[in-house]
C-alpha cells in the first residue's frame, strides 16, 4: 500500500499498535495541564501554592509547569517577597483553547 503524503500516520497505525502506556501518559499530561492552567486562571501562583491547591507533589508541579512554560502556555511573573519562589501566570495570548 502506498501511503498518502501527509497522512502517513494512518499507514503506521495499521502496522504498529500504540502501546497502552503511551495513551495513558497522554491522558495524564492533558489532565495535569488542564488542572494547572485552571488553577493559574484563578490567580498567579508559586509552585508550593500550586502543589497545595492541586494536592500534587512539588517536584511533579515543577516538572509539568516548566514544560507548560516551554510549550508557551504559562509565563513567569514576579518573585515573592523572600526572593525564593517565582509566581507563574497563564500566558495572555494562551494557545490553550480548552
Amino acid at each position: 500500500m502506498e501511503a498518502e503524503k501527509g497522512k502517513t500516520h494512518k499507514y503506521l497505525r495499521e502496522r504498529r499498535p500504540v502501546p497502552k502506556e503511551v495513551t495513558e501518559q497522554l491522558k495524564v499530561f492533558t489532565k495535569t495541564k488542564k488542572s494547572i492552567l485552571n488553577a493559574l486562571k484563578e490567580g498567579d501562583k508559586t509552585i508550593p501554592q500550586l502543589s497545595e491547591v492541586l494536592n500534587m507533589p512539588k517536584e511533579e508541579v515543577m516538572f509539568q509547569l516548566m514544560s507548560l512554560l516551554k510549550y508557551g502556555f504559562v509565563e513567569t511573573g514576579e518573585i515573592d517577597d523572600m526572593d525564593e519562589y517565582f509566581y507563574y501566570k497563564v500566558k495572555d495570548n494562551g494557545k490553550d483553547k480548552s
Partner: peptide, 19 residues
C-alpha cells in the same frame, strides 16, 4: 507517539513520513 497525525496536519512542507 500516539500516531494521532497532528504533526502531519501541521507540517507545511509535508516532511513527516511515518513510512
Amino acid at each position: 507517539c500516539t500516531l494521532c497525525g497532528a504533526c502531519e496536519r501541521a507540517c507545511p512542507t509535508k516532511c513527516i513520513d511515518f513510512t
